[in-house]
Write a protein that binds this DNA or RNA. Structure first.
Length: 517
DNA sequence: TGACCAAGCGCC
DNA sequence: AAAGGGCGCTTGGTCA
């Protein structure tokens, strides 16, 4: 990894100063660029028409290393200090870590080289440096992809979006007003109670239902559905549409859609498990009904690819459970498991999900007993992760991403009268962490490989945990679909080497995202 | 007035 | 579809 490193003098010149021409020339040697923060250094290059193949993101790597060393909070506080120094909002007010990466002034090349050397030394000292290097490479590739997707954007038809909103809500209202359909539903709710009630106010709703002789603890929709009262039906319809209006309505589009593209801000490693988050635009929570406004450009297509049953396959590969791995060699893993569960595919699915998530309800206990007997290594793998969490220890993903340590508050709680509850909660978290974090690593590796295989001008335009969308000319659809398949195979090889577990992708080329499912 | 929390629900 | 873990985002409501 050290060979062929190229250290860029980060941020030496004021923006738009990164020497795009120099980067373009050096890129022919395919170096691994080293910089403090991809989010600062890469967008100006993209803007200048330059894309790089590989990088080492010092900030992301530092976060991974600190977490591994049990200093999870310090990367957050260091990031906060860094953010403040740039005049950005700081996520928390932890005391900052002096020295190292996040100086308010740009790092000179010598400092970049020094920080890099220190990180590489720390990685070399790990029990499995090869895996951690893969994690660092994948995380850094993710940073490149996130910046590029933020620039390229996902096709988003504003005319179709407006038509959909108008169909569901009525025409766009003037600022501060409810759309006609929402107002009509609010009026129906009020009429059902016989007096005005703000359907957005939990307090008012609980009070109104109480006045009507209905005792409610919450106004969650599943609880409302069990109630027989004329206000329920319009209220449920109101809640659903109000959410569309305020979360993904016209104002949202004004802010996030420009030039026919939706450009969210992805946050690589924004979730402790390594999943991505967004810091705006809500890209990871777009309602399914909105998928019909995501349409390929004329003459282009959307290749939508989804990893099928990713998490149980990851568990099978990690645990080295021969029986589960054999089932995970099939396209429908749960169907392959059904035989072990009395021929019931659904029972197999509940057993697997309960094992990975710590479920206890319904038939879970009985089905888990079957799993323990038939797939002992897979069962033990997640049980061990749960036990580690309950004991306050750290757990790690396959490549070494590490869970945060328990808080001081948790340690107090766990030795108190309600300690069992706190311990079990953390056990569920760590049980899920090892699977979810490794699934996130696999997905990251898939994207990194896929990015390198895509023919120009095909572009990755969307990523959501285990699903990617590529926007490409119609004539490239076949090549892109083959690239997805090859990338999945390569991601599996990179993480797990020779394994009987398969990681099939469900891939389709469509002109509209809504047609993908 | 702004900061902050809780509720609720969208996605995986 | 359920079950669970993980998030982001908006609103109403409280408090300084």
């Amino acid at each position: 990894m050290v060979a062929g490193e190229t250290v860029l003098r980060v941020g030496e010149a004021p923006l738009p100063g990164p020497p795009a021409r120099a980067v373009r020339e050096l890129e022919e040697e395919r170096p691994r660029w080293v910089w403090a923060d991809t989010r600062e250094s890469y967008p100006p290059l993209i803007e200048a028409g330059v894309r790089v193949a590989r990088c080492h993101d010092l900030a992301l790597t530092e976060g991974l290393l600190l977490a591994y060393e049990g200093r999870h909070g310090e990367s957050r506080s260091a990031r906060a200090a860094h953010a403040r120094s740039r005049g950005l909002p700081a996520p928390d007010e932890q005391p900052s870590v002096p020295g190292t990466l996040f100086e308010p002034e740009p790092l000179p090349a010598a400092a970049v080289a020094e920080v890099l050397a220190g990180q590489l030394r720390r990685i070399d000292a790990l029990p499995d440096p090869g895996r951690f290097r893969l994690l660092v490479a994948a995380e850094s590739a993710g940073a490149l992809i996130a910046a590029e997707m933020g620039h390229d954007g996902m096709p988003w038809r504003r005319d179709a979006h407006d038509a959909l909103l108008t169909e569901l809500l009525g025409p766009r209202p003037v600022h501060g007003m409810r759309p006609a359909r929402l107002q009509a539903l609010a009026d129906e709710v009020a009429a059902a109670f016989g007096h005005p009630v703000n359907p957005d106010s939990v307090q008012q709703l609980v009070k109104a239902f109480k006045g009507a002789g209905v005792a409610l603890k919450t106004t969650r929709s599943w609880e409302l559905k069990r109630i027989d009262h004329p206000a329920v039906a319009p209220l449920l319809a109101y809640k659903e549409l109000a959410r569309l209006f305020s979360f993904h309505g016209w104002a949202w589009a004004d802010q996030w859609v420009r030039g026919g593209r939706f450009r969210p801000e992805y946050v690589v490693g924004g979730v402790v498990s390594g999943r991505w988050a967004t810091s705006g635009g809500g890209a990871l929570q777009i309602p399914k009904v909105m998928r019909r406004v995501v349409m390929a450009d004329d003459g282009w297509t959307l290749v939508v690819a989804d990893a099928a049953q990713l998490e149980p396959r990851v568990l099978a590969a990690m645990a080295g459970d021969a029986g589960l791995a054999r089932a995970a060699g099939e396209i429908d893993l749960y169907a392959a498991l059904a035989q072990a569960f009395g021929g019931e595919r659904d029972h197999a699915k509940i057993a697997m999900l309960s094992a990975m998530y710590g479920g206890t309800s319904g038939d879970a206990a009985k089905l888990l007993a079957v799993m323990r007997q038939r797939f002992p290594k897979a069962y033990q793998f997640v049980e061990d992760a749960a036990k580690s969490g309950e004991d306050g220890r750290l757990v790690r993903s396959w490549l070494g991403r590490t869970s945060p340590p328990p808080s001081g508050r948790w340690r107090e709680l766990v030795s108190g009268p309600e300690g069992g509850r706190a311990a079990r909660d953390r056990g569920r978290f760590t049980r899920n962490f090892v699977v979810q974090a490794t699934a996130a690593e696999w997905a990251l590796a898939l994207m990194a490989v896929l990015r390198g295989l895509l023919p120009d001008p095909a572009r990755l335009v969307f990523f959501q945990h285990d699903e990617v969308i590529v926007h490409c000319p119609l004539g490239q659809a076949g090549e892109v679909m083959a690239a997805v398949s090859a990338a999945a195979a390569e991601a599996s090889r990179l993480l797990f080497g020779a394994t009987p577990v398969r990681f099939p992708m469900e891939t389709v080329a469509v002109s509209c995202y809504a047609d993908a499912k």
